[in-house]
Computed example of a mutant assay.
Amino acid sequence: MKLAGVVEYDGSDFSGWAAQPSRRTVEDTLSQALSTVLRQPVKLAVAGRTDAGVHATGQVVSFSADIPLDPGEIAYKATAVMPGDLALRRCVEAPADFDARRWASSRSYEYRVLNAAVRSPLAWGRSVYISRRLDETTLTEAAGKILGEHNFRAFTPSRTYHSYFVRRVSESRWDREGEELVYRITANSFLYGMVRALIGTMLEVADGKRSPEDFGRLLDSPEARRSSAGPSAPAHGLTLTGVGYEDVPGL
């Protein structure tokens, strides 16, 4: 039986998604829990590998099970043996050839900036605190330039495993929610480090360090390197919120 699961985690104490020797990772912790419940080794495919410190509310995995357990029971039992910062929130039966990564048609992230005079202890681990007033007009302008298909070569490390740098972005916007500025982006796929590099560069625009026009020029410059863009925004403000699929009910 092939299964698909929606995974939620607080990335603060994880060294990212991917299994690493002597490191606490989401992949290791989740696969160990599922192996305990299913009484068999479990190999996971994942929609998107998140970096250390990045959170998820809508990560998606796929795996196989050889015992006839109800998917909902698998989610409940696996979560019961996992630590409090990780949960398999939902589990559904999927087509036999389903692969969480290869079948994904889109991925969505959000990034939270607490833009207030005084920091908030409750928002500390999920948003980046910036006390200075940010120019929301230029943030909105910069976000609009990201929509559509662009070459994002400037927003991923110069030494990279990627060979194709064009991505199609269907959502890119900043919203004010009380004292927080929330950036939301959806694309067919992302380059390594792309979202945090985009946000760090947009924050430079909001600080007046570069113009929206300069930012826009970076979006279609195959010759540009990572040093042309701004710094990466801190990981703890970023959350993977969802993955899009066309033919898997329940995800």
Rank of each mutant, 00 (worst) to 15 (best):
S22K: 14
S22T: 11
S22I: 03
E27P: 00
S31Y: 04
Q32L: 15
L34P: 00
V37R: 01
P41K: 04
V42E: 07
L44G: 05
V46E: 02
G48K: 10
G48L: 06
A52F: 12
T57W: 12
G58Y: 06
V61F: 02
S62G: 11
P68N: 13
P68I: 12
L69I: 12
D70I: 01
A75E: 05
K77H: 11
V81M: 09
G84P: 01
G84C: 08
G84V: 02
L88W: 00
L88Q: 02
E93W: 06
P95E: 07
D99Q: 09
A104C: 13
S108V: 06
Y109V: 11
N115Q: 04
V118D: 02
A123K: 13
G125M: 09
R126Q: 12
V128E: 14
I130L: 15
R132Y: 09
R133I: 12
L139F: 07
T140E: 15
E141K: 13
K145S: 13
H150W: 13
H150G: 10
A154S: 05
S158P: 02
S158I: 00
Y161W: 11
V166E: 14
V166W: 14
E171N: 07
S172L: 06
L181R: 08
L181E: 05
V182K: 08
S189G: 15
L191W: 11
Y192C: 02
R196C: 03
R196T: 02
L203R: 03
G208S: 02
E213Y: 05
D214M: 10
L218E: 01
L219Q: 10
L219C: 06
S221M: 09
S221G: 05
E223G: 06
R225W: 04
S228D: 15
S232Q: 14
H236K: 13
G237S: 07
P249A: 08
L251V: 11
L251T: 07
